[in-house]
């Protein structure tokens, strides 16, 4: 079922579904309201295994809400989400099971301040996967090395820079060996000089074949890493296309306006 060994390389001219892959995320007719406010409107989206999708759009367009529906941090009222063959329901057990397979990185890092970096990374594998302390710690160190901060393992989050905290947050998510990673503006809260180190970590992750959904306005990242770029406005997906077309021949006027603003800043 998986293509992990087939040497599959993303090709911008070919739809991934043509390769005969089952989508790992399927979203059908997703609708979400906050009270009277229609935050997501008829969202349809499929993401194939190992695909890298970047989502962008103006503030308030529903980007966060969309990816937060995938791991049920936001509940939706209408439609269907299937993650790796499991349909998302409101049953806590089902939700927790899906969350265990879907890692998430937040704009504000959200590390646990009362735990050390190492403990942050060990908590979920021990509690959710039932790993032993030794095993969990070994895995944690492996991923802390991967994000290049093993030497910070015994520090508390408050002692780290923003960029380091975000890399720990990525390592913490990876310790659960997720099948999918969701990123919600992972570099937006960072000082400019730290954006690079976090993006590098994400690029490395993409190179390893991780399925990724990233809300970001880092257009350089989108251009070089994404298989598809999605543009949302007012709760709708209005553009969903490979980065070349997205950036070089955007035919949607609102996208053109948006790109104009983004690239000027």
């Amino acid at each position: 079922m998986t293509d992990k060994d087939s040497g599959f390389e993303p090709d911008h001219n070919v739809s991934h579904f043509a390769v005969g892959k089952e989508p790992i995320i399927t979203i059908e007719d997703l609708n979400k309201w906050f009270g009277d406010f229609h935050a997501l409107k008829n969202i349809n989206l499929q993401v194939a295994e190992r695909e890298r999708v970047v989502i962008c759009g103006p503030s308030g367009s529903g980007k966060s809400t969309l990816i937060r529906c995938i791991n049920h941090l936001d509940v939706f009222q209408k439609g269907r989400i299937v993650v790796d063959g499991n349909e998302l329901t409101n049953v806590a057990r089902n939700v927790d099971a899906i969350r265990a397979e879907v890692g998430m990185v937040f704009q504000q890092f959200n590390l646990f301040p009362h735990l050390t970096v190492l403990q942050n990374c060990m908590l979920a594998p021990m509690r959710v996967r039932g790993k032993s302390k030794a095993e969990a710690s070994q895995t944690a160190m492996k991923f802390l090395e991967r994000v290049r901060i093993p030497e910070q393992a015994s520090k508390y989050p408050a002692e780290l820079s923003g960029g380091q905290q975000q890399r720990v947050a990525i390592a913490r998510a990876l310790c659960m060996s997720p099948k999918i990673m969701l990123f919600d503006e992972p570099t937006s809260a960072l000082d400019p000089e730290m954006v690079r180190e976090v993006l590098d970590t994400m690029v490395a992750l993409a190179d390893e074949g991780m399925t990724m959904l990233c809300v970001t306005h880092e257009m350089g990242f989108a251009r070089s890493v994404a298989d598809r770029v999605i543009f949302m406005t007012a709760g709708e997906i209005v553009v969903d296309t490979p980065p070349l077309e997205f950036f070089d021949s955007p035919d949607n006027p609102r996208l053109r306006e948006f790109l104009g603003q983004i690239l000027h800043n």
Binding site: L73, A92, D96, R99, E101, G103, N110, L111, V128
Partner: peptide, 10 residues
């Protein structure tokens, strides 16, 4: 939210 996103139960 971060705890929930990691799959931790209530």
């Amino acid at each position: 939210e971060a705890a929930a996103a990691l799959g931790l139960s209530y």
